[in-house]
Amino acid sequence: MNLVLDNLTKEFGNFTAVDHLNLSMTNGVYGLLGVNGAGKTTLMRMLCTLLKPTGGKIYCDGRDIREIDQTYRGLLGYLPQDFGFYPEFTVRDYLLYISAIKGIRPAVAQKRTGELIERVGLAKAADKKMKKLSGGMKRRAGIAQAILNNPKILILDEPTAGLDPNERIRFRNLISELSEKRLVLLSTHIVPDVEYIANQILLMKDGAIVSQGTLSEILRSMPEKVWNCVVPQEAAHKLAQSCKVSNRKLIGRDAELRIISAEKPCETAVCAEPALEDVFLSYFGERGGSEHGEI
């Protein structure tokens, strides 16, 4: 499976959400990282044929997805960020309905629905109405609907948003399991999710991919360095105004800071190994004195 984005652009009036994006993806997990408004959801909606690009094309195995239309959507599984459902449907009915609109034959749908209900841990809630499910259970129903048709391309938009740590870990493991022999595009702004399961990381900013590679490649490509230092609180406040601070921990009257900076920020600063969160901050973070404040 090969997806190619050729000069893909989406404009909403004067605002360019996705800006002449070129990208090629094959099987594996792609982690799409970016702040809110970076264009991740718009990109995913174009990939799911929910939005028509203003310019450029998307090719699936060399064929324009808008031309192969239904055939392409047959390869697709999608869990949107705002996962909506039919509140009065039971989990089973919901999955059977989605099976129908995915073109799965009723007999196969019955079997597949039963299997997936077990697999995502919703066996006890199968006959409960969707509106009665907890947030985590709804997300599990969401992932179940996305993989009903055993998709070759699985697109997950912020799948772990709003989940408690247990649910998040469970979900990450499930996605990892599903990633075999398919292309998974996972969008999130929760950095550890990508760090743990993505084979390739895509950093998206202002509608463009600013960096792409494996975790180690991304870490190596970081344009700044990471520094650890312990300074008095007053000095810590001043440093936060001038540098990107990825962590601040109070120790008595002092503060331990983790700073992203090209230059050594203070005398006591010691160079440290970068983590993906530092890279995220390096690309997307603002300095404390900037308009958006410290991240």
Partner: peptide, 13 residues
Amino acid sequence: LKADSVFFSAKLG
């Protein structure tokens, strides 16, 4: 209900 994304991205949507 915000169910449109799943609906229209389905094969027969």
